[in-house]
């Protein structure tokens, strides 16, 4: 899977030499997003020195990391051939569940975290089970769970607390034992970086390793590329799909927890609308909408592009109202670039 610069070894097939380094590089799904990220970085850095200062970097890594964690799980699910529209509001469900159980019901904070993790995994399981069992498009199934969760987040929270937000996490017993893990800062040359960035790096590393080096990763590509063929050859397709949905649930729990512990409160509309941004990040990172192809590193870079743009616009002195327009334009560019790259790869592939 690695691209080496060294000339072909003597025992290598002489016909392989024709495949140039450029084509090898261009065939990597994440190459388009990497080039895009570099160009964006240079553009923003030219327009504002603050952008590439340590404080500036910390600033745009902050949103990039939260979106990035979700983008990894969503990208894996997309490689496996499915969407999860409920991923955004599920981060809200995770935070709300933990907050309600601790502040309202007095449950131990660690126990509450465990229960809400099980809840998120369970919702992921239900999504995956319904998709594999009914054979309906995951788009429809998760659109339904998205709406139901959105309603539940609001209705149940109001029923229990009477308001649309739950706060007071800082007063919960043992909050200080949880905080270092989810809401601490790491000081680098006098600038604080949030610990969620490390979580992001960890999730990306695990995701990339699983996809490239494990049997489950192989199955993910196979199930997304051709579900019938992979089932016929003996791949446990349903189990793979359900596990991918549960991974989205686990990441949603992580992001919900990171936000809750950082802000010590949670709104009922948290995560609403973010599900599309995860998909945007995955697509910018080279994931095919049809499944079977993509990269979590690309998705992470897609999230980085999102973070850089959201903060870079402000640093560049532009009205942040333009942000969504830029994001849409970049998505379009990314999709066109990916399509061009794939055609180029196919043409010279013979």
């Amino acid at each position: 899977m690695t691209t080496t610069l060294s000339p072909p070894t003597p025992e290598a097939d002489e016909r392989v030499a024709r495949v140039g380094l450029l084509r090898r590089l261009v065939l990597r799904p994440e190459i388009g997003s990497l080039i895009g990220a570099v160009i964006l970085f240079v553009l923003f850095a030219v327009s504002s020195t603050q952008f590439y200062s340590l404080a500036g970097i910390s600033n745009w890594l902050d949103p990039a990391s939260l979106f990035g964690i979700m983008a990894v799980a969503v990208a894996m699910l997309m490689i496996g051939g499915h969407f999860d529209l409920s991923a955004g509001v599920l981060t809200g469900t995770a935070g709300l569940a933990t907050a309600v159980m601790t502040t309202q019901w007095g449950l131990n904070i660690w126990a509450a975290l465990l229960v809400s993790l099980v809840l998120c995994l369970g919702i992921g399981f239900v999504n995956g089970y319904l998709v594999t069992r009914t054979g309906l498009p995951s788009f429809i199934i998760t659109l339904a769970t998205f709406l139901m969760l959105q309603g539940l987040n609001l209705a149940v929270t109001k029923l229990i607390t009477g308001t649309v937000s739950v706060g007071g996490m800082a007063q919960v017993p043992f909050y200080d034992t949880v905080r270092p893990l989810f809401a601490s800062r790491i000081n680098v040359f006098g600038v604080d970086f949030k610990i969620q960035i490390l979580w992001w790096v960890l999730v990306v590393a695990i995701g990339a390793w699983v996809l490239a080096k494990t049997r489950f990763g192989n199955w993910t590509f196979a199930v997304g590329g051709d579900p019938v063929a992979s089932r016929n050859i003996g791949v446990p397709a349903a189990r793979t799909t359900i596990t991918l949905f549960m991974a989205v649930g686990a990441c949603a729990w992580l992001v919900g927890t990171l936000k809750l512990m950082e802000q010590t409160s949670v709104q009922t509309n948290q995560g609403f609308g973010e599900e599309l941004i995860y998909i945007v990040a995955a697509v910018i990172g080279g994931c095919l909408l049809t499944g079977g192809y993509g990269s979590v590193i690309g998705a992470a870079i897609g999230a980085l592009i999102f973070g850089m743009t959201s903060q870079g616009i402000v640093y560049a002195g532009l009205d942040s109202d333009w942000f969504k327009f830029f994001l849409g334009a970049m998505l379009l560019l990314a999709v066109l670039a990916n399509q061009y790259v794939r055609r180029y790869a196919e043409r010279s592939g013979k």
Binding site: W209, K213, T214, R215, A222, G225, D226, S230, G292
Partner: peptide
């Protein structure tokens, strides 16, 4: 339809569903 996944490399298709692994437990890898 040959039960092959077109986008996957030949060797991954060859071993699909019966992958060889090394290592044990959580670090078992292809």
């Amino acid at each position: 339809d040959l039960a092959v996944v077109k986008l996957m490399p030949v060797w991954r298709n060859f071993f699909l569903g019966s992958e060889m692994r090394k290592g044990r437990g959580p670090i078992a890898r292809l």
